[in-house]
Each structure stands twice: as structure tokens, then as C-alpha cells.
Amino acid sequence: DELEKRVKKIARKLNLSLDQVEEWLKRNNNDELVEAVKRLKKK
């Protein structure tokens, strides 16, 4: 979905793993995208 695409884009842009992106999003209080990261990690 759109949020998952955004997460992947962030990960690529910042050259981070999904775990690192998740931490980064949590620090930025971006719950919506944190949920998207969790969905991606399950895939």
C-alpha cells in the first residue's frame, strides 16, 4: 500500500534496515508509518 511504499522509500533514501527505520519513526512519533513497517516486516 501507499504507506508501505513510503517506508521502503525512506529506508532506501536513508540506507537503513526496516528495524532502523522503525526506531527512527518511533522517535518521530509517526505511528501510522510504524504500523506500515510492522506489516512489511511480516512479509
Rank of each mutant, 00 (worst) to 15 (best):
I10E: 01
Q20S: 04
E23H: 07
K41Q: 07
E4G: 04
K26Q: 10
R39E: 05
V34W: 11
R6N: 05
E32P: 06
I10Y: 04
E2L: 12
R12I: 09
E23W: 10
L33C: 09
K43S: 06
R27T: 09
V7E: 00
W24R: 02
V21S: 00
K13T: 12
E35T: 05
N30H: 15
A11W: 10
L3W: 10
K8F: 11
D31S: 11
Q20H: 03
K41V: 04
E22W: 12
R12L: 10
R12K: 12
K13A: 13
N29V: 07
N30E: 15
K5L: 13
N30T: 05
E23D: 10
K43L: 10
K9W: 14
R12V: 06
R27G: 08
E22K: 05
K5F: 12
D1A: 12
W24S: 00
L3I: 06
N29T: 08
Q20W: 05
V7W: 05
K42M: 10
D19A: 11
N29S: 10
N30G: 08
V7H: 02
N28A: 12
R6L: 15
V34A: 10
L25E: 00
E4H: 03
L40E: 00
K43T: 05
Q20E: 14
N30K: 14
V7P: 00
E4M: 12
I10V: 03
S17Q: 04
D19L: 07
N15H: 13
R27P: 01
R39A: 09
V7N: 01
N28R: 13
K8R: 14
L3A: 13
K13P: 00
K26C: 13
K8Q: 14
K38T: 05
I10P: 01
E2R: 10
K26H: 08
S17D: 10
K38E: 06
L14D: 00
E35M: 10
A36S: 03
E22N: 04
K42D: 07
A36E: 02
I10K: 01
L16G: 01
D1V: 09
L14S: 02
L33Y: 03
L14Y: 15
R27I: 11
K38D: 03
N15C: 15
V7F: 04
Q20A: 09
R39W: 03
R12Q: 11
R12E: 09
E2T: 09
L40K: 01
D19V: 06
K41Y: 05
K9A: 15
E4N: 04
E32A: 12
K13M: 14
R39I: 04
I10T: 01
E22Y: 12
V34R: 08
K8M: 15
L40Q: 01
K43Y: 10
D31R: 10
L14I: 02
E23I: 09
V7K: 03
V37Y: 03
S17Y: 07
E35Q: 09
N30Y: 15
L3K: 05
L18N: 01
D19E: 08
E2W: 13
K38M: 04
K8Y: 13
L14G: 02
L25T: 00
A11F: 06
A36T: 05
K5R: 14
I10G: 00
L16Y: 08
L18T: 02
S17G: 06
I10F: 04
S17W: 09
L18P: 04
L14R: 05
K5N: 12
V21P: 00
L16C: 10
K41R: 13
E2I: 12
A11M: 15
D19M: 06
K42W: 04
K38Y: 02
L18H: 01
R27W: 11
L40F: 03
N15I: 03
E22F: 12
L16I: 07
L33E: 02
N29E: 09
D31W: 15
D19S: 09
A36W: 06
N29F: 11
R27Y: 11
L18S: 02
N30I: 15
D1I: 13
N15L: 05
E2H: 09
K41I: 10
E35A: 12
L40S: 01
K13H: 11
E22M: 13
V34L: 15
S17A: 06
R27F: 12
V34G: 03
K26D: 03
Q20P: 00
V37L: 10
L16V: 05
K9C: 15
K43F: 11
D19T: 09
V7S: 01
E32S: 09
I10W: 05
A36Y: 04
K38A: 06
I10Q: 01
V34K: 05
V37D: 01
L33I: 04
L18Y: 08
E23M: 09
K26A: 11
V7Q: 01
K13Y: 13
L40C: 05
L25F: 14
K8P: 01
R12A: 12
E35P: 03
L3D: 11
L3S: 06
K13S: 13
D1W: 08
E35G: 05
E22Q: 07
K9H: 13
E4T: 06
K8D: 06
R39N: 06
N15P: 00
R6T: 12
K38C: 13
K38H: 06
V34N: 04
E4Q: 05
E32K: 09
R6P: 00
N30M: 15
R12Y: 09
V37S: 03
V21N: 00
K42N: 10
V21R: 00
D19G: 06
D31L: 14
W24I: 07
R6M: 15
V21L: 15
W24E: 01
D1S: 11
N15V: 03
D1Q: 10
D19H: 07
D31T: 14
R39T: 04
E4I: 12
K26N: 06
R27D: 08
V37K: 02
R39V: 03
K26M: 11
L16F: 11
L25I: 04
L16A: 04
L16P: 00
L14Q: 02
D31M: 15
K9D: 15
N28H: 13
R6I: 15
A11G: 02
N15Q: 10
R39Y: 02
L40A: 02
D31Y: 15
L3T: 04
N28V: 11
K41S: 03
K9M: 15
A11P: 02
L25Q: 00
E35F: 03
V7A: 05
L3R: 06
K26L: 11
E2K: 11
L33N: 02
L33F: 04
V21T: 04
K42T: 09
V7R: 02
L25R: 00
A36Q: 02
V34C: 09
N28I: 14
K9G: 09
L14N: 03
L16W: 13
E4D: 03
N28M: 14
E2S: 10
K9T: 13
V21M: 14
R27L: 13
N28S: 11
I10A: 03
A36V: 09
L25V: 03
K26E: 06
E4S: 05
N15A: 08
E23T: 06
K13V: 13
N28T: 13
L14T: 02
I10N: 00
N30S: 10
Q20M: 07
V7T: 01
L33A: 02
I10S: 00
V21E: 00
E35V: 05
L25S: 03
R39S: 07
W24V: 04
E22L: 14
N15S: 09
E23R: 09
K42A: 13
L33P: 01
L16M: 15
L3F: 11
K43M: 08
D19W: 07
R12C: 15
L33T: 02
V34H: 05
L16H: 02
R12H: 09
V37R: 02
N30R: 14
E32G: 05
V37I: 11
R6F: 14
V34P: 02
L3P: 04
K41W: 06
R12M: 11
Q20D: 08
K13L: 15
E22G: 05
K42R: 12
V34S: 06
K5T: 12
K43G: 05
V21H: 00
R6H: 08
L40I: 08
A11T: 04
A36G: 02
E22D: 04
V21F: 08
S17I: 06
V21W: 03
L40W: 06
K13E: 14
E32W: 11
V34T: 06
K43C: 11
K43R: 12
D19C: 14
K38G: 04
L14M: 10
E4A: 07
L16R: 03
N30Q: 15
D1G: 08
A36I: 09
N28D: 05
L25Y: 07
N15R: 13
E4Y: 08
D19R: 06
L3G: 06
K9I: 14
E2F: 10
L18D: 02
V37Q: 02
K38I: 11
W24D: 00
R27M: 12
L18E: 03
L33Q: 02
R27E: 10
R27V: 09
K26W: 08
L25A: 15
D19I: 05
S17M: 06
L40H: 02
K38S: 04
K8T: 11
E4P: 03
V37G: 01
N15W: 08
A11N: 00
V34E: 08
R39F: 03
K9S: 13
L25N: 00
L25C: 14
L18R: 02
N15F: 07
W24L: 11
